[in-house]
């Protein structure tokens, strides 16, 4: 499959990247590792006039621990992050989700910023143009209705970042820079909740950094997938436990992660939390596994992840 034609610009700074974006009147896509963007371009699921490469922005390539935060530049590769000693020592859940992301070859290419801002996936969306034309365009392609759930007016394609779940469980924040200025917000707040427009970001905004409060945690990441070697999650649960309680983040099902703060760690609270996650999970037939099964697995993995931490602590 060949790439469509587009203009290519390589930015040396965040400001220059935003300027390029403006040059093309917003018809530009940012490129980091490219592991998510390239297939989208080849499938013509994205047809930008320009691709603005962020890989040359040196300042986004560092990891630093100071002022009570671990700050991670968006250009840091998943592989480097996975091998960072502070991440290993302080944030085991992140270490596990990084390890569970794709395969090492792609971990060396993909960046943490790109991983968080990856597009949602659906078995009827990530297809060739010929396939989609024959099937008819769905909501996410600008059509009238969902192809998976007839008559549905909302797209429930799956957000498949493993690391967003662990970062949210760790109460991570993200810094955004855009034509309208800079801001910092909780990672869980950047999602729109709608699969056809996944992120509630302003036009041209760039995710520049992620920061996690420097507090040691215990953590477990549980992921349902067909093959352990490479696949996207079909349901996943991240749990981080700190002194003041456990935060659970559920993903892989639907367009946005869901957060659950556990008030207690007794069997009843864990069961109730898992049941709530099961009730909330909006699984639809948009992957190779059935929605019923994926929902059940949200509950099973939730309990498994929390109980694993609890038993480790004993």
């Amino acid at each position: 499959m060949i790439l469509p034609g587009f203009e290519y610009r390589k930015a040396a700074s965040v400001a220059e990247a935003i300027a390029f974006y403006n040059d093309f009147q917003g018809k530009a896509r940012y490129l980091a590792g490219g592991t998510d963007l390239m297939p989208l371009l080849k499938y013509r699921l994205s047809t930008p006039a320009a691709v603005v490469d962020l890989k040359g922005i040196q300042e986004l390539g560092a990891i630093s621990a100071d002022h009570g935060w671990l700050t991670i530049g968006a250009n840091v590769t998943l592989f480097d992050l996975k091998n960072d000693p502070v991440v290993k020592e302080y944030f085991p859940v992140l270490c596990q989700s990084l390890e569970a992301t794709s395969c090492e070859t792609l971990q060396m290419r993909g960046t943490i910023g790109g991983n968080l801002l990856q597009d949602t996936r659906c078995i009827e969306y990530n297809k060739t143009m010929e396939w989609r034309t024959a099937r008819g365009f769905c909501l996410k392609m600008g059509g009238e209705t969902c192809n998976v759930v007839p008559h549905s007016r909302i797209c429930l394609s799956n957000y498949c970042s493993d690391n967003a779940l662990s970062l949210i469980a760790l109460s991570a924040e993200v810094s955004l820079a855009g034509p309208e200025g800079d801001k910092t917000t909780g990672l869980e707040k950047i999602f729109s909740g709608c699969g056809s427009r996944v992120f509630a970001l302003g036009p041209g905004e760039i995710l520049t950094r992620i920061r996690i409060p420097m507090e040691k945690s215990r953590g477990v990441y549980e992921k349902l997938r067909v093959r352990n070697s490479i696949d996207y999650p079909l349901a996943a649960v991240a749990v981080a436990m700190r002194q003041n309680g456990a935060r659970v983040c559920v993903g892989g099902v639907g367009p946005a992660p869901r957060v659950y703060d556990l008030t207690g760690t007794d069997a009843g609270s864990v069961r109730d939390g898992a049941q709530k996650a099961y009730t909330d999970a909006r699984a639809v037939p948009n992957s190779t596994l059935s929605p019923t099964y994926r929902r059940k697995m949200v509950r099973a993995l939730f309990r498994r992840a929390v109980n694993k931490i609890l038993s480790e602590g004993k």
Partner: peptide, 22 residues
């Protein structure tokens, strides 16, 4: 997986075969 005659699993990302690591 085929619905209404249309192959859903039309690539290695959906029709999964074991890799060496599996």
């Amino acid at each position: 997986q085929i619905i209404h005659g249309k192959l859903l699993t039309d690539g290695f990302d959906k029709y999964r075969i074991p890799s060496m690591l599996d």
